[in-house]
Design a protein around this nucleic acid. Sequence first.
DNA 1: GTCAAATACATTAGATTCTTATGTATCTTT
DNA 2: AAAGATACATAAGAATCTAATGTATTTGAC
Lengths: 113, 113
Amino acid sequence: MIYSSELIKGTLKTIVLKLLADNKKMYGYEITQKVKELTLDKIQITEGALYPTLHALENDGLVTTETEFIGKRVRKYYTLSPSGKNKTKEKVSELADFMETMKFLLDIKTKTA
Amino acid sequence: MIYSSELIKGTLKTIVLKLLADNKKMYGYEITQKVKELTLDKIQITEGALYPTLHALENDGLVTTETEFIGKRVRKYYTLSPSGKNKTKEKVSELADFMETMKFLLDIKTKTA
DNA sequence: GTCAAATACATTAGATTCTTATGTATCTTT
DNA sequence: AAAGATACATAAGAATCTAATGTATTTGAC
């Protein structure tokens, strides 16, 4: 089972930031594989979604990049900036909070009958 | 604190379906107020987001509607159809599953260093 | 008794963000 | 030699939300 894409919307940026916080330095393809692995294939980030997100994080100054050559092939590493680390904490705790709220909302039984 | 709008994306339909499952019959404005109340103002559904969602649910045959007049003012009630009830179970359990996965993803500490 | 706020529906332009498809190129395995 | 994996990237289109706007009635405060 793969989660419907609408669920990924809005959480992708947080997932990427959190992975970078835990792994210090990652490149795009590595991120897609790591997420796939950690979620047992239930979350599959497409490249069309990931790269624009990474570029946006870079534009916002939340990550810095460095290019490395593996043989003749380019690899672009992303690292959290100080503001990126703060942002990660914010986003993760907001999502954790949101999930608590949703859990409550999904469990409620306030039948009118 | 109000959750950033991107988090609501993708969960709105599930929230609406779940509320209808618990309350049998609700109208639009009532849904916005109920969500606001249950989440202590942290989730505020705007009308521009809600009405298109309700209309989509109706087009998909997941809800049926009936119009009532309160004085001279129209009130449009929404009720889950049988397929809507099934859909609700699916969406709620998918979201619950997704949240478990996200919780795991946010808690992991797999430092490479 | 009048004015503001709340109730209640709805639509629309614009923004955001994802999907799907496409493109380029290298490296590894069979 | 071919297929599949690695690795970057962009772009058209779809979906879905925000913010603004519109109409109209009812309620509560002064």
